[in-house]
């Protein structure tokens, strides 16, 4: 897989931000092709939010440049730049005096869309995000649960159909079950198809689930930039290795596919695996096998092949 996309829609070079003596973002460079999802990952306080806000000029860098579509953001009016980029902030930040529908309609209104189109778009988005408009459109934000508010925040960011979406821990402050559900909705949202997404999280599983590429930060410095697989299997340094240590096995199971295992499976492969596509993760394959109890015998050969495939991948 090429490390550098051919046509970057976002190009960040040498981006640096200091607050007093503290270097919060330290010489970060990254490029992102249209339609890709980049996850900014790292421990709390490592500078993810600051880096994200420099993309839409909510924070001005001390050094370095941000180019969107080949144009330096400092040469654009900030509000016009922002109207072209969906933005979900960590604390949701719904306008408390606007109804749900009015919150969703903020950016389309700023852009001067016709009211009927705004109305239709709002209804569509709310429906898609499991907030039936007839029940939710006229409510005020304080009449919603935390999860519902985050969905409205997401709908608001997507309302004007921006080509780029910036998301700052959009599923934070949710309990794990709700979180997995809303994440699935998010991944399958047609509105997000083809969009360039920059997503901030400190949740490793979330990063692996959503990222094309991950930028792992520590104390403002890039520790590694690459695909989830690269970070997991070829950690660039000790920090990266330790960052994934706690969840290494589940991540490996989710990252390696049957295609990776193919060379190491005994001939003939267990028949139960024949029906599964080559892109199926080991984790999913295991779940399927154990669900069909009589075939649990295939687990042994599968784990054997997994072990060897891992050795090969890391070598």
């Amino acid at each position: 897989m090429p490390a550098t996309p051919a046509v970057p829609i976002i190009r960040v070079r040498g981006l640096t931000k200091r607050y007093g003596p503290q270097v919060v973002v330290d010489d970060v460079s990254v490029e992102l092709a249209a339609g890709q999802t980049l996850v900014l990952l790292g421990p709390s306080g490592c500078g993810k939010t600051t880096l994200l806000k420099m993309l839409n000029r909510l924070v001005e860098p001390d050094a370095g440049t941000v180019e969107i579509n080949g144009q330096d953001v400092r040469r654009q009016r900030p509000e016009l730049l922002r109207r072209g980029m969906g933005y979900v902030i960590q604390q949701v930040g719904l306008l408390p005096h606007y109804s749900v529908a009015e919150n969703v309609a903020v950016v389309p209104r700023l852009l001067g869309h016709v009211p009927a189109a705004i109305e239709a778009r709002t209804q569509e988005l709310l429906t898609r995000l499991h907030l039936p408009p007839e029940r939710f459109a006229q409510r005020l934000p304080h009449e919603l649960s935390g999860g519902q508010q985050q969905r409205v925040g997401l709908a608001r960011a997507l309302a004007a159909d921006p080509p780029i979406v910036l998301l700052d821990e959009p599923f934070g402050a949710l309990d794990p079950v709700v979180r997995a559900g809303i994440r699935r909705d998010f991944r399958e949202l047609p509105e997000l198809r083809g969009k360039t997404v920059v997503l901030v999280t400190h949740d490793v599983a979330e990063a692996f689930e959503l990222a094309d590429r991950i930028l792992l930060l520590d104390a403002g410095r890039v520790q590694q930039l690459g695909t989830p697989r690269e970070l997991l299997l070829r950690p660039a340094n000790e920090f990266v290795r330790r960052f994934f240590a706690a969840e290494r096995l589940p991540l490996q199971l989710r990252t390696l596919t049957l295609a990776d295992l193919q060379p190491f499976l005994s001939e003939p492969p267990p028949p139960a695996l024949h029906q599964l596509p080559a892109a199926t993760s080991v984790q999913t394959a295991l779940e399927q096998l154990t669900a069909a109890n009589p075939e649990a015998a295939a687990v042994g050969p599968l784990m054997h092949a997994f072990h060897h495939a891992l050795q090969a991948a890391i070598a």
């Binding site: 909510l58 509000e79 922002r82 109207r83 930040g93 306008l95």
Partner: peptide
């Protein structure tokens, strides 16, 4: 006024006057 609300509004593309 909650700073989050103001930041969200700015992030959506409202001008300072707006």
């Amino acid at each position: 006024v909650s700073p989050a609300v103001v930041e969200a509004a700015r992030g959506l593309g409202l001008t300072d006057a707006q």
